[in-house]
Design a protein around this nucleic acid. Structure first.
Lengths: 344, 344
DNA sequence: GTGAAAGCGCTAACAA
DNA sequence: TTGTTAGCGCTTTCAC
């Protein structure tokens, strides 16, 4: 392995097959308009030489890259506390692979990286971007919009800029929250509390809205702000218990929060679900199935979210090449399902 | 945004700065051998035009891509049950970013994808590969080795092929396991059981070896095979309890397994750590801190592993360009640390 | 130290 | 249907 053998070029294949470079190119790119016998000969030559097209040369002329960027902002937060991220990536990867696209991963660590990402996207290295932006005040979405790259967001972006043309895929956080609270109500619970998520994220806001949809005139004391962490859940639960000792149910903004709440409830001597019923959100398996009792929760199809994001993006990208697509893609909100376990 | 403005080329910058393309190229690539006033003029032109080099054109001539592939095999297993993967990626990403390299993510779903990955790597699209291969019989490592791409493995690859030149970064699984068991022994425990991980993975094998290092002539009945999952941990723990009701400690191959074991212990009426002390492995926070009692475990620096992998790879890649590096990189095994919590 | 010119490997008009 | 030809934007000798 001292010297890597030079890889064969179109030229070499053409020579071997006894045709022109153009013909080889046609065959390699689908073979339309080339007569069968030639196609066969070229295929054979490609095979024998182990020819693989040089993507750089191809991109140089086509201006396509068959690559899309996945931008994940602020990985220090939620992204690394749970396996969501990996799940979404998997969905994205599957879809991209099916369309022969590569996935370029851009992880950002705060402000300094924004410029870098902006430059990269504006630099025309990829055909589009899939962006996960978690916070309401994140400057990234705006930056990316300015870069002029086709983009699909993961989760409703909560920024205040121009919303036109923004495409996102999200779970039905609000609807899922409604289902959770209705389920608790259906169990006969009347004093249903809510521990919110970090309210600088749209998912937390939407879940709170869903709670309010059902608990139209809920005691404001039943709502406490959490932050999507177990510790936050514990603190919030203690506060709730102090404020409303008569509560008989808790809807937590996510499973991690619910896990924290569960611990405090147990420590306080409450039995779950007998005294207090608990519902989470996410169906984050390593947590939801391991709590004691196992958690009733709202499941979102994370992998499907990823797949859909990629699909929407590729559709938009195809359009660039002139392919018909029947209108601009629009956002999609995926349904959630309530998963009943032991806690409610 | 109907028509994307054509991005400025070297030519344009050259014209604006009143120099040749060659000079601009030199400045853009470090500015060596160009006199200060010119450098300044070119920099200004670049700035004003918002020039970003076309990577495709550049790669076409340099044959470098400033991109490396991260190959993750079999994402359906462990990778998606815990946040490890994300952590490693983060470490990798940081290091690559610092060296202006992009991260191309290749997720594989079983055999069908191997050919695709092999083709991609052999196709010379990237300068190197970082490979996570979890199973002993994985054909991927061999495939990749054949592709002739500089590669660093995440975790000691356990395949039976030619080991020469194989570079990997791993945690000191064996040493960490020894520490865990010694800690239990230091607590005065004598009947220390071990629930292994999935033994088709080197990490599980190494941890078992570490256990054996300390428990030189342990009762074979104290060792039960698990699979790194909570359910496997439960099953194994039940078996252990049936076989050796007198055990006073358990070293579980990972935290998930420990969590399962903990539940069974509690159900059986054992108090932890009073009756049975438990130690896990990984320090997977969302689990280790949430169990009851919180888990004493062996921490590995996952992010550092990722960073190191990237560093080793880039070093090897640089060498290609003729840069001095002082010998081929060799594998690295990172130390672990015992984290004491309540369970032991 | 700087510029002119020759490609890198490919696709896409256009001609035949 | 097939071949010829002209670049895509850049780096890199090689003159000057």
């Amino acid at each position: 392995m001292t010297e890597t053998a030079p890889r064969p070029t179109l030229e070499a294949v053409a020579a071997r097959a006894g045709v022109s470079r153009a013909t080889v190119s046609r065959v390699v790119n689908g073979g339309d308009g080339v007569r069968e016998p030639l196609v066969e000969r070229v295929r054979k030559a490609v095979e024998e030489l182990g020819y693989v097209p040089n993507q750089a040369a191809r991109s140089l002329v086509t201006r396509r890259h068959d690559a899309i960027a996945v931008v994940v902002a602020e990985p220090e937060t939620r992204v690394f506390a749970d396996p969501f991220f990996a799940r979404q990536l998997r969905g994205i990867s599957k879809e991209l692979t099916a369309h022969d696209n590569q996935l370029v991963l851009l992880l950002t660590e705060g402000r300094d990286d924004h410029a870098r990402v902006g430059r990269y996207l504006a630099g025309g290295h990829v055909d589009g971007a899939l962006v996960f932006s978690l916070h309401l005040d994140d400057p990234l979405p705006g930056l990316i919009q300015r870069a002029g790259v086709p983009t699909v967001f993961g989760g409703r972006p909560g920024w205040s800029g121009d919303q036109r043309g923004v495409v996102y895929v999200d779970s039905d956080n609000r609807g899922g929250a409604r289902d959770a609270v209705r389920h608790l109500a259906g169990l006969g619970r009347t004093r249903i509390a809510h521990i919110t998520g970090a309210l600088d994220q749209t998912s937390a806001v939407d879940r709170l809205d869903g709670y309010r949809d059902v608990m139209v005139d809920a005691d404001p004391g039943l709502i406490v702000e959490g932050d999507f962490t177990p510790t936050g859940g514990e603190r919030a639960m203690r506060e709730l218990l102090a404020r409303c000792p008569d509560l008989d149910a808790v809807f937590a903004a996510n499973d991690l929060t619910a896990a924290g709440a569960l611990r405090v409830l147990r420590a306080s001597g409450r039995r779950v679900p007998d005294d207090v019923a608990v519902v989470g959100f996410d169906d984050m398996l390593p947590v939801a199935e391991q709590t004691d009792p196992a958690l009733t929760t709202v499941r979102q199809d994370i992998e499907e979210m990823g797949r859909l994001m990629a699909r929407l993006l590729l559709r938009g990208v195809d359009r660039r090449t002139g392919e018909r697509v029947g209108g601009a893609p629009s956002s999609v909100v995926l349904p959630t399902t309530l998963v009943r376990r032991a806690s409610a």
